[in-house]
Amino acid sequence: MHVLVLAEHDGDRLRAGTTAALGFSRQLANGDGDQVTCLVLGDSVATVADDAATFGPVLLGSHADLAEPLADRWAEVTAKVVQSESIDILLGASSTFSRDILGRAGGLLGGAMASDVTGFLRDGDRLVWQRPMYAGAVTASVVLHGSPLIVTVRPTAAETPERRSSPASITPISIDSGRLPGSTGHLGLDGRPSHRPDVTEARVVVSGGRGLKTTEDFERLVGGLADRFDGATGSSRALVDAGLTPNDLQVGQTGKVVAPELYIAVGISGAVQHLAGMKNSRVIVAVNSDPHAPIFEVADYGIVGDLYDIVPEMIQHLDAD
């Protein structure tokens, strides 16, 4: 079995979801002769390739026309590599990046695809993939028919594997830029510089919901509490819709899925769609004024009261330690 992992990176290093996908791939491809290869695409991304090579062999496609992850171009290059290398499983981390590009690659490669996989079983020669449906209310077991298989994996499904003591090979692939699709253009990314870790990568996530009234309150209370743990901030959909928080903080069925060591839900009632994004966190704390809020049904510890009193008190206690 040969697994190809499409690298998501920040121009310098692999993102955490990709290293977890590499860990997942090793569980899949653990037999004699099995291989896991990482495909790094971009422009001037030698350092990313170096990072990836500490986990295993790398194919590197570097070209100015791949500077931005435009789905049509990246999917085309990825699908070509899948075919030329006789890849059995094309894999990536569950993220907007993979949904966009691997989804399109899946369309070029016959559509045997499972999204947001959380685990797998071997049933004879078949692989049975587990994935959530209905906002996580049920776990489905699915078998894919076709070849290659295309799979996106929840970053929480596996650990980052150990790095090798000496790096593996980096093999350049040629990019025929004249044949790349050209009807999509990248105009900009309104990235939000933050001193905090990404919500999917932090050990502690503090999320705010409708109980927060202003952006300033969110920053002072949710952000303040997160900073006491060197943690990340997350948001319910309500605050993003209201323009109080940026979309990339949204945790839930249609946002990001997180499973940190500690998740603190501040003023979040706990709609099913939000729970889908955080209920696998190891320890969950809920702060809410409504004792009947559904968030308490998935929490380990609950405290009923006004977040405007409780959170400052928590910050004060943590500072006193």
Binding site: T96, S183, G191
Partner: peptide, 11 residues
């Protein structure tokens, strides 16, 4: 809407 902010594309 991407995981890392709002990206603008032309198609």
């Amino acid at each position: 809407e991407t995981d890392h902010g709002i990206e603008t594309l032309s198609v």
